[in-house]
Design a protein around this nucleic acid. Structure first.
Lengths: 241, 241
DNA sequence: CTAGTATTCCATAACTTGCTGGAATACTGG
DNA sequence: CCAGTATTCCAGCAAGTTATGGAATACTAG
């Protein structure tokens, strides 16, 4: 058996996986898919791509088994193939953190503003959620909330924040979260809430981090009475699929 | 602040990291560096590249901070920038495992042979090493042993295995390890040992996995008396640098 | 069956990357 | 200071990748 040939194949296959992530738009698509499954057209719209192009990026991701698809009527729904894929994306982001700070002025200033919003870490958020002395809001689009959300969180998509802000109690702190540590939505939400006098902070990470840590999540739409619950609801711990 | 611009920058930076791993040869170089620092020329030789080419691949890896270098006399020594990088490489390999099986005939048959060698997992190896009822041999080149090795292991590079085989006791099991789960050296060693009647098995992973799990490692050359120690030697647990 | 829609497939053009060989740089050992 | 060695830099070519727009496919609704 020729060891050199085996080695070359191994490295080639690993590099193929990396190659699939070597395009900004594909990373963006995966990042979106980490929030829940979506159609090609939805992905195209959110990532600012043509449908053609999106389709071809998706087929690259599918080729290396990072995503899977199912067909329903005329729609193709894509999703990440495995929790390991979402976890891998988080590793990639963590690995790049240091360089991000050094390299990019635009991003650096954004980070600095972000840090002024007193991020709450995972353990603290969980503690406070258990004690019930915090209102947690999910500012991602409603479809993403419906797919999975932090158990006990209210759905308050950024675009409807203004309208629903009145529902929020002013006498206890609010924590907003969105897609991940680099997602801009929670930052935006916290800024707006603070302007209105709320005691708002942002969750330092996002839904995928929370879920992959095995912390309680729930599925489905928000209960009709939109009053902040005293205690967190049913916790469905799930471990990788 | 323009969120779309920030997003594009973020995804671009992440993709750049992935891009650095999108070449088989660069993955191979990183994989080698995960075993310890090396000069450009040594890397070129082991990966089967010209020095020119190696240098340019290394500068790509350095550009995204996956590796660092230091200059000593006329030699440039490269090393992995951080334990997180080695860990990331392991994730990449794990992520690709399923596809590896499906896709590649050459590799698949190799895997099948490998599994016949009754791999020992990390926890079991540690248990037996503690009890002292196993001889662990490191079959990587001596330089890699000197850089870091499993505490209590003997250095028995593949090319010198034949000569030193007599030193090994026949009355207890031998476990061979090398660079990682996909490294060919331990397989080779176990095959040869079995032919000579030794009770040999291979460690399912490799040195980086062991070290990153926080299990005891040691540095420096082997003690002069090459007799298998009854108990494992000093254990230096280290956590990321 | 027809019109319409969602998606994928394909050919093309602009661009990027990897490899090669030659030249430049920087250090060592006399 | 000189010859030799290790490494990096650079120009040029071959190969591969991305985005685009048009065509093909497959399904739904009527």
């Amino acid at each position: 058996m020729d060891h050199r040939r085996v080695k070359d194949r191994l490295y080639a296959v690993w590099a193929d996986t990396a190659k699939a992530l070597a395009s900004p738009k594909r990373v963006e698509l995966l990042d979106l898919l980490a929030q829940g499954e979506r159609t090609v057209e939805a992905l195209a719209r959110e990532a600012g791509l043509t449908v053609n192009n999106t389709s071809s990026h998706l087929s690259v991701l599918k080729g290396v088994r990072l995503v899977e698809s199912r067909k329903e009527a005329q729609f193709a729904f894509y999703r990440v193939a495995d929790d390991a894929v979402s976890a891998f994306l988080l590793h990639l982001q963590a690995l790049t953190r240091r360089r991000m700070h050094e390299v990019d002025h635009l991003v650096r200033t954004y980070f600095e503003e972000r840090d002024a919003l007193e991020p709450v870490d995972r353990a603290e958020l969980r503690r406070r959620l258990r004690r019930g002395d915090v209102t947690v809001i999910d500012v991602r689009p409603a479809v993403e909330y419906d797919a999975v959300h932090i158990a006990g969180a209210l759905s308050m998509p950024l675009e409807r924040l203004h309208a629903r802000m009145g529902d929020l109690p002013k006498d206890r702190p609010i924590v907003a979260y969105c897609r991940g540590p680099y997602c801009v939505m929670a930052v935006e939400a916290v800024e707006r809430l603070r302007k209105r006098g709320y005691d708002a902070r942002r969750f330092a990470e996002g839904l995928p981090d929370w879920r992959l840590a095995g912390y309680p999540v729930a599925e489905g739409p928000e209960a009709t009475n939109a009053v902040p619950p005293r205690r967190s609801r049913t916790a469905s711990h799930r471990r990788a699929s």
